[in-house]
Write a protein that binds this DNA or RNA. Structure first.
Length: 396
DNA sequence: AACATGGTCAACCGCCTAAGC
DNA sequence: TGCTTAGGCGGTTGACCATGT
């Protein structure tokens, strides 16, 4: 039981607001501005608690609120953001100008959710083991509009457990609009991402990461791949100061033109093989109810494992953090739990610890290939001092 | 016409976090 | 450093309305 509700004071009105009350609140805020909700009712002559006043203002009286039917575009935005963010209505609302989180929540619960259930395309964030294909949205799902993916196809991943990098890369994919350079665009074209479609030039990080993951299985394209990985990660980092682009949904939708259904491996797939990897030092993550997770054992290449491990470690970097969830404490969010965040760094008791870890030799070579500064990696906690890593010279 | 049922949405509740002291 | 509290968030409730029987 938390604090007693502020509206329990005897004599305060509850329930629907009358036009007279609305007028009092409106005129008071127009005169004195928002804030100071605790004493506002008294000053405005309202027999309401401050919280009730704030809610009434925020959800109904504010002049910049758009009311009425949601457009198909708005609905698509909600569906796509909900697939990525879950029930974080306030975050979703920030991407729908002039709509309130309450209105979006109501619209989702009364219409969109039902519609998706009827279509068999509902991804249940509340009960992930019941109807959701996996514990997070894979990049493949992002690339192929999640609501367009057949249920039967999704059910093949039912026992998939995805952790740190999958979540983080999905967040990047969702929040970052990449405008590809000629280099990366040609990379995608060469490796099947574009298929001659000019729209590949405005792709998204989800498809890029899928392409990278796919191509990473082909050793001969190593050099090209490294350039691509560097570009994806640097673009994601650059985006940390940008607000989530309202064009996300268009970008994601456009990318569905790429033929990812057959050739791409999702970040989830990478994660699965990561869990099987001994050199990553990852203990088997447990689900939130403490039960041991089951894994799908896929034949993913060691290179993909390394890539995934690096993505996971890079996610620790501060600049990436701010990219992932620019406006919320993403480590405390329901979507990315703190234990998932430090999945590669659990202590013996399974509690979360933030410890720099030593990269495997494969990772170290790829870090070097990618041109990362060992000094920077050390100070950002991605590597720790070991026999191999000399903190005097900051080199391997 | 009366009642039952279901949908919608404004408002409330409990909890959390950050800021202020 | 710990406590208090305003503000914010997401889940839930219940009044109201439309439709069906």
């Amino acid at each position: 039981m938390g604090r007693a509700p502020c509206c329990n004071v005897l004599g305060l009105r509850k329930g629907a607001w009358t036009p007279e009350e609305d007028q009092k609140l409106l005129s008071y805020i127009q005169q004195h501005g928002e804030g100071g909700w605790r004493f506002l009712p008294q000053k405005a002559g309202l027999m309401r608690c401050g919280k009730s006043c704030r809610l009434r203002w925020a959800n109904y009286l504010r002049p910049d609120i758009k009311r009425g039917e949601f457009s198909p575009e708005e609905e698509q935005t909600i569906i796509k953001l909900h697939a990525v963010l879950g029930n974080r209505w306030s975050t979703i609302a920030k991407n729908l100008p002039r709509r309130t989180d309450n209105e979006i929540k109501n619209h989702w619960n009364t219409r969109l959710k039902k519609r998706l259930i009827e279509m068999g395309k509902y991804l249940d964030h509340d009960h992930p083991n019941e109807s959701r294909p996996c514990s997070t949205i894979t990049t493949t799902q992002l690339v192929n509009n999640p609501i367009d993916q057949p249920k039967a196809q999704r059910s093949t991943n039912d026992s998939t457990t995805t952790t740190t990098s999958a979540h983080l890369l999905n967040e990047i994919a969702a929040s970052t609009k990449l405008k590809l350079s000629n280099c990366l665009a040609s990379f995608l074209a060469r490796h099947g991402g574009g298929g001659g479609d000019k729209r590949v030039a405005v792709s998204n990080s989800a498809s890029v990461l899928n392409m990278v993951a796919t191509t990473y299985r082909k050793p001969k394209s190593h050099a090209c791949l490294i350039d691509a990985v560097k570009e994806v990660l640097s673009k994601s980092s650059q985006a940390c100061s940008e607000e989530i682009d309202h064009g996300n949904e268009n970008v994601i939708a456009n990318s569905s033109n790429a033929d990812n259904s057959s050739c791409s491996i999702s970040i989830s797939d990478l994660e699965i093989s990561n869990n099987n990897s001994s050199d990553m030092g990852s203990p088997s993550p447990k689900s939130k109810n403490g039960q041991e997770s089951r894994y799908v054992h896929s034949a993913t290449s060691p290179r993909a494992v390394v890539l995934n491990g690096i993505a996971s470690k890079l996610a620790l970097v501060k600049r990436c953090r701010s990219t992932l969830l620019s406006s919320t404490d993403w480590r405390a969010s329901s979507h990315v739990s703190s234990s998932e965040f430090v999945d590669d760094s659990h202590d013996a008791a399974g509690s979360a610890v933030l410890m720099p870890v030593s990269p495997s030799s494969d990772e170290r070579f790829l870090f070097q290939d990618m041109g990362f500064d060992p000094l920077e990696l050390f100070f950002e906690g991605i590597v720790s001092a070991t026999d191999e890593f000399d903190t005097n010279t900051f080199s391997w």
